[in-house]
Simulated assay, not measured.
Amino acid sequence: MAVRFIHDCDTGSDDAVAIFAATAHPELHPIAITTVNGNVDVAHTTENTLRVLDHAGARVPVYAGATRPFVRPDFPVPRAVLNRASQLHPEYLDFPVAVSRAEDQGAVSFLIDAYMDDANADVALVATGPLTNVALALATEPRLAARIPRLVIMGGAHGNGNVTASAEFNFWVDPEAAEAVLSAGIRDVVIVTLDATHSAPLSGADCDVLDGIGTPAARGAAQLIRHRLEHDQAAASGEEGGGEVASPVHDPMTVAYLVRPELFTETVRAHASVETSGGRTLGELIVDTRPWCPQPPNATVALRASGQVYREFLRAAFGQPASG
Rank of each mutant, 00 (worst) to 15 (best):
A139V: 10
R143A: 05
L144K: 00
V152C: 13
P175Y: 05
L151Y: 00
F169Q: 12
V173L: 05
W172E: 10
I153A: 02
F169I: 07
V152G: 04
A167G: 07
G161I: 04
R150A: 13
T164C: 14
R147G: 01
I153G: 02
A165K: 06
M154V: 12
G161K: 03
A146N: 06
G156F: 09
V152N: 08
G161Y: 09
N162D: 13
S166H: 13
G159E: 10
F169E: 05
V152T: 15
F171L: 12
F171A: 07
V163A: 02
A139M: 07
P142A: 11
A167T: 06
N162L: 13
N162W: 07
R143P: 03
N160F: 14
T140I: 10
I153E: 00
V173W: 12
H158A: 15
R150F: 05
N162S: 11
E176P: 02
R143V: 00
R147V: 01
M154P: 01
A139T: 03
E141D: 12
N162M: 06
E176A: 14
F171M: 13
N162G: 08
A157G: 13
G155F: 11
R150D: 00
V152K: 09
I153K: 03
E168D: 08
L151P: 01
E168H: 06
A167S: 15
E141W: 00
N170L: 03
G161A: 08
R143S: 07
T140R: 15
A146D: 03
N170A: 11
E168M: 07
A165L: 14
V163C: 13
D174S: 10
G161L: 09
T140W: 09
A167Y: 04
A165M: 12
R147N: 05
V163H: 03
S166Y: 13
V152S: 09
S166L: 15
I148Y: 00
A167F: 06
H158E: 07
N162A: 09
E168C: 10
R143I: 00
P149E: 01
A157M: 06
W172V: 12
E141H: 02
P175Q: 06
E168A: 14
S166N: 11
G156V: 13
A165F: 08
G156E: 04
A146P: 02
L151I: 02
A157F: 11
V163T: 14
A157Y: 02
R143Q: 03
T140M: 12
V173T: 14
G161S: 09
